[in-house]
Amino acid sequence: MLAATDTTELALRSVRYRSALLRAINHAGAGHTGGSLSCIDILNVLYSRVLNVSPQNWASPNRDRYVQSKGHSVEALYVVLAERGFFPPEQLATLCHYQSHFVGHPTRYIPGIEMNTGALGHGLPIAVGMAIAGKLDAAPYRVFTLLGDGELAEGSNWEAAMLAAHYELSQLTAIIDYNTLQITGRTSDVCDNSPIDEKFAAFGWEVHSVDGHDLAALAKLLSAPAHGAAPRCVIAHTTKGKGVSFMEDVAKWHHGVPSAAEFETALAELAAAERALLGDAE
């Protein structure tokens, strides 16, 4: 387990990431707010505690690989990469602007991003290829990919899931940002994909469930070393819009951009959360 101070430090980071991604979306006038808020704790833990990847080892063939299959939540990835030093945070002010490299979905123009994603159902096959390459070379790196729950309707995921078990890719972890919402509404109403755990288990994966906002639990689970033969599926139960009361669990915030008043309210809530955490830390 992480020490309490470690957890508080992580929690502070998450709150600050939330404010930063809202600022970026507000400035751009576009973005995928709800999904970015639901996966930010996962990204925080990955980049703070799990992935062996940094601006210093970015060119190393042995770096850990992270592929964001739910590419629409790129704002979450951008703020984390900026804070981790992959590029100056002020560059994010150009998000979605004319001639900016900060496109509304991940691209390899941005240091720290492995692949251009955004069309759904692509990340897992790519991650499987990366993991096979690592296995062929007996390389030490691990491969992580983050998928949305609505995204699991794409058939290519299941082609890749089948192959990952066939090749016994234990160094591969697929994290599902299981916020139960997609653009139209409840995933269970659009095309019910439950039970996800049993589906991945039936495809030969080792399946774990975790509270996707419990930073300590995420850190413990995701940093556990690869073992055995099965690829690992982590179903992270999350809340879309997490951290901003009026955005939580509301489908319209999938790509909703806050009004000026909503933006101020959201920042005030996050500032209060930050103060509370700082109080805890004292």
């Binding site: 692949m115 790519i126 290519s156 890749a160 192959l163 066939h166």
Partner: peptide
């Protein structure tokens, strides 16, 4: 045999996996 990667009858996965392999220097 170590230089042929079989993915089964799954062309989308074929190309996605190929891209993942290619991104790792293959």
């Amino acid at each position: 045999p170590r230089q042929i990667v079989e993915v089964g009858i799954a062309e989308q996965n074929l190309v996605g996996v190929a891209a993942g392999l290619g991104s790792c220097g293959k």
